[in-house]
């Protein structure tokens, strides 16, 4: 009898929990899951932005094949560019952020001021950052060209099309992206570094450990979960990057700086191809999940 009563109580608790979770769950399904399924459904159709879904325009997985085989859709190049940005983020941006976090986390004069300065680009609107860098890169009066002239690195009068030359446009577009988020990752890691026990540091110092050894054997292993989050953000953020590229080059010149999102907008909005645009959206979601899982697994294996 007592057992049945306890079971009834558990069932009732379960129902209560379910009822409380229901609104959130409905929101999650409605805002996140349903659009993904809808996008997948659209991706199986050859349809315009203004067309309704119909059996007539169902083409199965042809959009996915076309994405990698059609010469007129620069998706493979865009994907490679994104992966390159992801690699640069992981191997240049994050080590830089980690270095700054370790330096500031150790405690130094003007720590707060440095933190604010490094974090400032994150607070400024990306459109403003884009406009700022457009001025820096301007071939006629841009700060960069003028500085190179002044330092005699570039012969005076010689102009460089930082964003107009397809050989260097990609690198030029990536620099502001990497620069903007150094402060963001630095702040995440800085919080972790500050959380490392002072006792541990002091014990290591008593044992004669140098700053480098303390960072290597104590601080970095302690903030590994934060580094993992930063790596996931950096990689998925690279795959999703759009705003700065849009302002700086809009994917040009001659598709040299295309990223998957610019190709998606081109297909979806400019060409009205809802089917192909949705295919790219689904590919992006799949790739983001895939990389997040790979990074998770890599860190787990290391643990």
């Amino acid at each position: 009898m007592k057992g049945i009563y306890r079971m009834n109580k558990n069932v009732k608790n379960g129902i209560n929990i379910f009822l409380f979770l229901l609104p959130g769950l409905a929101l999650f399904i409605g805002v996140l899951i349903a659009p993904i399924f809808m996008s997948f459904r659209y991706s199986l159709h050859d349809m315009s932005l203004l067309d309704p879904l119909s059996k007539e325009n169902f083409i199965g997985l042809k959009n996915y094949v076309k994405l990698f085989t059609s010469g007129s859709i620069p998706f493979p190049k865009a994907l490679l560019n994104s992966l390159l940005l992801a690699a640069l983020s992981v191997f240049i941006q994050l080590p830089l952020s980690l270095g700054l976090a370790l330096l500031l986390g150790k405690g130094m004069k003007g720590e707060r001021g440095f933190l604010s300065v490094f974090f400032m680009p994150v607070l400024i609107s990306t459109i403003i950052i884009g406009q700022l860098w457009l001025k820096i890169y301007n071939p006629d009066y841009g700060l960069l060209t003028r500085a190179l002239w002044a330092l005699h690195i570039l012969p005076e009068g010689k102009l460089i099309q930082w964003l107009g030359d397809e050989k260097i446009a990609l690198a030029s577009a990536f620099v502001p992206i990497l620069w903007q988020y150094v402060g963001y990752h630095m702040l995440l890691m800085y919080a972790g570094v500050k959380g490392v026990s002072v006792d541990l540091r002091e014990a290591a110092m008593l044992d004669g450990a140098t700053d480098g050894q303390i960072n290597r054997y104590i601080v970095i292993p302690s903030i590994k979960p934060i580094i993992k989050v930063s790596v996931i953000f950096a990689v998925t953020g690279s795959l999703k990057s759009y705003d700065l590229i849009k302002v700086l080059t809009d994917g040009g010149p001659f598709h040299a700086t295309e990223v998957p999102t610019t190709v998606m907008i081109n297909q979806l909005i400019l060409r009205n191809k809802a089917g192909m645009g949705s295919t790219i959206a689904v590919m992006l979601i799949v790739l983001c999940f895939f990389f997040a899982m790979v990074i998770n697994r890599a860190f787990r294996r290391e643990d």
Partner: peptide, 15 residues
Amino acid sequence: DPSGISLGNDEVKNN
């Protein structure tokens, strides 16, 4: 203007 390739219309018009 060789710079035109990387400039927007507003910048070119202003030039």
